[in-house]
Design a binder for these strands. Structure first.
Length: 596
RNA sequence: GCCUCGGUAGCUCAGCUGGAUAGAGCAACGGCCUUCUAAGCCGUAGGUCUUGGGUUCGAAUCCCAACCGGGGUACCA
């Protein structure tokens, strides 16, 4: 039983007995005591003054006296203004430490709600360009949230909807036909997704030039945009593709394959994976059928030009197009089809879409549309809406080539980790392979932590001219502390020191106490992260814990401690911190090197 | 225009279900490697929490308004 809960329950009784007042749920505020104050746990007594009709100090003293007498582990109290601070016995914190030290599942498989089957869609790339930093944020969030939901007791299916058809890939196809000169990943030595992306940029350059040309000739902007020869050609390709034209379909397959093999490399590098992959080319027709069923059942309306619309004005939204006048499907059509297929394939309790906040409106509409089509789960879909990664120059734009490429960024960071390690003279005793593996872990640790430590809902800034740090509040700092603890533990084994859990500690230093308190908070952090879909909560927890540990580490010697109980206690404390930090960082998809 | 999200130190971010003197990191300056890994630790400096009202014992946190910025807004994805 958590001490906070015991105090809360006792406070409830105290208020009834002392002031004949029954507090409502949430009226009793129990919190950790500020670091600079005497005590461990604080009860805020301001809200009770109306009922005690006595000054704050007096009220606090009365309640404090009551609780010291009725709650085990509460040793004493002090009152500062309206704050009632309790001192908790060392035994409580130490018992907690021993329990978490012995429990390999500490903070894993949290008890509580029944297990749900959650499907998480993330990544969802278009196949016409390589992944960039914005996609990295998506992938890391999707993966991390999956891990967090798992330890919170859910079953998770990670899914990826690959947007493999549509005008975007046709643009790359057209450009390749026109200027490709038979270039392939094999004969150019280029990664497939990068090659295809190059043609996408090429297309856009050309397209823009054509538009400028046409506007000069007197066309309006809209006319020019739709009449430019390259866009006309791309549209033709799309129509041919939909008609199943063999040559077009073959080119489409070939170029998509290039992209997939490129993506595989990037995904592997990032350490993300999927349980089930859907392809838009296999779901969009299902979506189209659903829309046509909606027309037959008078849920949607078809206009004279044969375009199909949903009237969502009763739901406070606008009218939304579902099929173009030429009968082709739009973006949202395939999402309807994909959703239907998923619910046919799995008994999903909850569907989570990890998609950027620029699509908030899209998902609002999707929920309503699915509901109108009679899917009972439609309203329950959860759009996990994360913020954009911004560059100092603004938003990333693939078309203009204004992006931070995912592969380049990872490679650069590995190189930097390598350089730094050499400069610091680390890992010299290891083999090349072992060292390389650690450089990779450090580089990815830095990248992942950099992205996941910020609140996922907020936009974040990335300045390419300043590389991602390895010092301070970073992944490598946490990895480094972990490696040092591991090193201490290795040395203790070498000295045949065996950790004995039966420790008798009379006094704790403030750093030790602080660490013990934080250890008890880990399961709460995991729960909170799950409730809020926020890896950042875990990241910040780990940082605080590690920061605290470093201070402890510099104030106390561990291995040279002569007192047997102290030695045991400190080793156990260190080992527990290391395990918790490792678990937490693993939830972020960050690997922990044993040395660095 | 309308909808929506945001504005905290020079920079990047925590803190936001109201609680005590608003916290980290980076950058700047100073100190600490014969002692378990210095990717570390300690110290100095840096703030009208965009502004103005309101709610109350108490507001960075909740409400209203203004200003500034991001995103969206019917045949792009």
């Amino acid at each position: 039983m958590k001490i906070e809960n015991l105090i809360e329950a006792a406070t409830q009784k105290a208020l009834i007995d002392l002031y004949n007042f029954t507090p409502e749920h949430g009226q009793i505020q129990v919190q950790n005591t500020r670091k600079d104050q005497e005590g461990d746990i604080t009860l805020v007594v301001f809200p009770f003054l109306r009922f005690s009709k006595k000054p704050a100090e007096e009220t606090g003293s009365e309640i404090g006296g009551y609780i010291v007498n009725s709650v085990k582990y509460v040793e004493s109290f002090s009152v500062v203004k309206g704050f009632l601070n309790f001192k908790i016995a060392n035994e409580y914190w130490i018992e907690n430490l021993v329990a978490s030290y012995n429990n390999v599942d500490y903070g894993v498989n949290l008890p509580g709600e029944e297990s749900k089957l959650v499907m998480i869609e993330y990544s969802s790339p278009n196949t016409n360009k390589p992944l960039h930093l914005g996609h990295i944020r998506n992938n890391l969030l999707g993966f991390s949230i999956s891990e967090i939901l798992k330890v919170n007791g859910n079953k998770v299916i990670k899914t990826n909807i690959v947007n493999d058809r549509g005008i975007h890939i046709c643009k790359s196809m057209y450009a390749w036909q026109k200027w490709g000169e038979g270039k392939t990943p094999e004969n150019s030595g280029m990664k497939g997704d990068h090659l295809v992306g190059e043609f996408y940029v090429e297309f856009d350059k050309n397209y823009k030039a054509e538009i400028t040309e046409l506007i000069k000739k007197g066309l309006s902007k809209e006319e020019a945009e739709s009449k430019a020869p390259s866009i006309v050609a791309a549209r033709e390709l799309l129509l041919k593709w939909e008609a199943g034209d063999a040559e077009t379909v073959n080119l489409w397959k070939k170029m998509n394959e290039w992209v997939y093999s490129g993506f595989d490399v990037t995904y592997r590098k990032l350490g993300v994976d999927f349980d089930k992959i859907y392809y838009e080319s296999e779901t969009y027709l299902v979506g189209k059928e659903e829309v046509l069923r909606g027309v037959r059942e008078n849920i949607f309306i078809q206009k004279e030009d044969s375009s199909v619309w949903a009237d969502l004005t009763d739901d406070g939204l606008d009218q939304k197009i579902l099929l173009r006048s030429d009968g082709t499907s739009v973006y949202i059509t395939q999402d309807i089809g994909t959703a239907k297929m998923r619910y046919n394939d799995y008994e999903i309790d909850k569907m989570v879409y990890v998609v950027g906040n620029e699509q908030n409106y899209h998902f609002q509409i999707l929920a309503v549309l699915l509901d109108k089509l009679g899917f009972i789960w439609g309203k329950d879909l959860y759009h996990f809406s994360y913020g954009m990664v911004e560059l100092p120059s603004g938003k990333m734009k693939s078309r203009e080539g204004k992006v931070v490429d995912a592969d380049d960024l990872v490679d650069e960071m590995i190189q930097e980790a390598r350089d730094m390690s050499v400069e610091l003279g680390k890992l010299e005793s290891l083999s090349k392979e072992e060292a390389e593996d650690i450089f990779r872990m450090i580089a990815l640790g830095a990248l992942k932590y950099f992205i996941l430590k910020v609140d996922p809902r907020k936009n974040m800034m990335f300045d390419p001219s300043e590389s991602i740090d390895f010092n301070g509040n970073t992944g490598p700092f946490i990895q480094y502390t972990y490696a040092r603890i591991k090193s201490v533990l290795r040395k203790s084994w070498e000295n045949n020191i065996i950790i004995d859990e039966n420790v008798k500690i009379n006094s704790l230093s403030s750093k030790e106490k602080e660490l013990l308190k934080r250890i008890t908070l880990y399961p709460l952090a995991v729960k909170e992260a799950g409730d809020n879909y926020s890896p950042a909560i875990i990241a910040n927890y780990c940082y605080d814990l590690v920061k605290e540990f470093n201070q402890f580490y510099h104030e106390h010697s561990i291995l040279s401690e002569p007192n047997k109980d102290q030695l045991n206690f400190r080793l156990m404390l260190s080992a527990t911190v290391a395990e918790i930090v490792k678990k937490g960082m693993n939830l972020l998809g960050i690997e922990m090197p044993e040395r660095m």
